[in-house]
Design a protein around this nucleic acid. Structure first.
Lengths: 223, 223
DNA sequence: TTTTCTAAAAATATCGATATTTGTTGACAA
DNA sequence: TTGTCAACAAATATCGATATTTTTAGAAAA
């Protein structure tokens, strides 16, 4: 009962499956921001029991993607312009810190991992597979910060990354993100990191976020 | 079944009660760092059902006080010197940011709230009630950051505060914390904030943490 | 001895049913 | 009309039982 065969044959718990599915549904907006999340409804939709759904929702609370109301169940975290801006500000502050620490700890192994992550992202972009690009994009950004050797900081950055993704979908920009000249921005970051130029790397990363932020702020301005 | 009468007559859900109790047990070390947390054992200890315990543990995962192992249940988050130092570093960085924003947004109302929080802390200290002092101490520190008007940042600071508390107990310093000259440090912070001197306030706060950190590092050095 | 395999025990994850709350509707009084 | 209050409906939180792992222990083989 515990072990489940997923489509790809990988075995997972029902809770984990529910967690990943619900997470994706919230990030993409399939479950709208602020929407009431009824257990029975989700249970039927995911074809699983109430317990896994309930636990998955509890877990999503950690990620600030779901809110728990007193004894009135759960709802998808509301979205607002203020929230979007707070996320942007915090990302800049935390990622700046993490990136600088990563560079301070730089090793050949890390740099190689970065180059690989960057290459995979470019390949996914060339192949035009949106979900694969999304995964590779997150992997690249996380790889940049990974060498800071600061698990909590990395966790926070990952959370903020995901929260931001949701606003990308809200802005209906999820699909055409690649069309901006984001590739150049990524290369600038990578180059600066490889040169161990912390200021340039951080500057390029901050610029990347600020540009993306401005880009999204327009369609989000009426939140 | 849902509604529970607590000792103080306040009604809460079984999950919330379990959450608060388990949290306290982990913070104080009654449940040791790294210890396996068996549902049945906790269920009996808290005199409640397995579901509330399970959900409470899920919630504690958000706070990084509990880890969830694949399909092998839960355990209290392990403690290590590296973890302690990471918490200290992040607290300094995040609270510096939050405090400066709070001061930038300063209002008379906020300053009054701070003075009250500080007074309560002093009173609790004078009365010698450790748990009340602990609560008031946290309330004071959170009040300092509250005016930054940045819910996520405040949440992170709160989490890090609690994680640090656990190390205080681990260092067996939980009881004699007040004996250090912490009162003066708090006054310095408050004075600087009231003067709207961000640099002095931040400096005093950072000093407060660094001193506390050094103070705890000694007994923790063998983690 | 050490390793490997198997059977029993322990613990987890999940289900289905039930009690408790919250939300809603409509009648009745003001 | 408007407001209050019961009865009803919907949804949540919780329990108890069960299926599925994981862990442990012991026996058989190398």
């Amino acid at each position: 009962m515990n072990l489940m065969q997923q489509a790809d044959g990988k075995e997972t718990s029902a809770t984990r499956t529910a967690y990943l599915t619900l997470r994706q549904m919230i990030l993409t907006g399939e479950l709208a921001a602020g929407e009431k999340l009824k257990i029975e409804q989700l249970r039927a939709r995911l074809d699983t029991g109430a317990s896994p759904v309930r636990e998955a929702l509890s877990l999503l609370t950690s990620d600030m993607l779901v809110e728990r109301l007193d004894q009135r169940g759960f709802r998808a975290a509301p979205a607002s312009l203020a929230n979007f801006q707070e996320i942007l500000t915090l990302r800049c502050a935390l990622e700046d810190m993490a990136l600088r620490q990563s560079i301070a700890n730089a090793t050949a192994v890390w740099e190689e991992a970065l180059v690989v992550a960057h290459h995979r992202m470019k390949r996914a972009s060339a192949e035009g597979s949106i979900p694969e690009f999304e995964d590779a994009h997150k992997a690249f950004h996380m790889a940049l910060l990974d060498n800071a050797d600061s698990p909590i900081l990395l966790r926070y950055c990952g959370q903020l990354y995901d929260l931001n993704i949701r606003y990308r979908y809200l802005a209906a920009a999820g699909t055409n993100y690649q069309k901006r000249d984001v590739a150049t921005e990524h290369e600038e970051i990578l180059d600066a990191v490889v040169r161990s130029d912390a200021n340039a790397a951080s500057g390029a990363l901050m610029n990347h976020y600020r540009v993306t932020g401005d880009y999204l702020a327009v369609p989000l301005s009426d939140l």
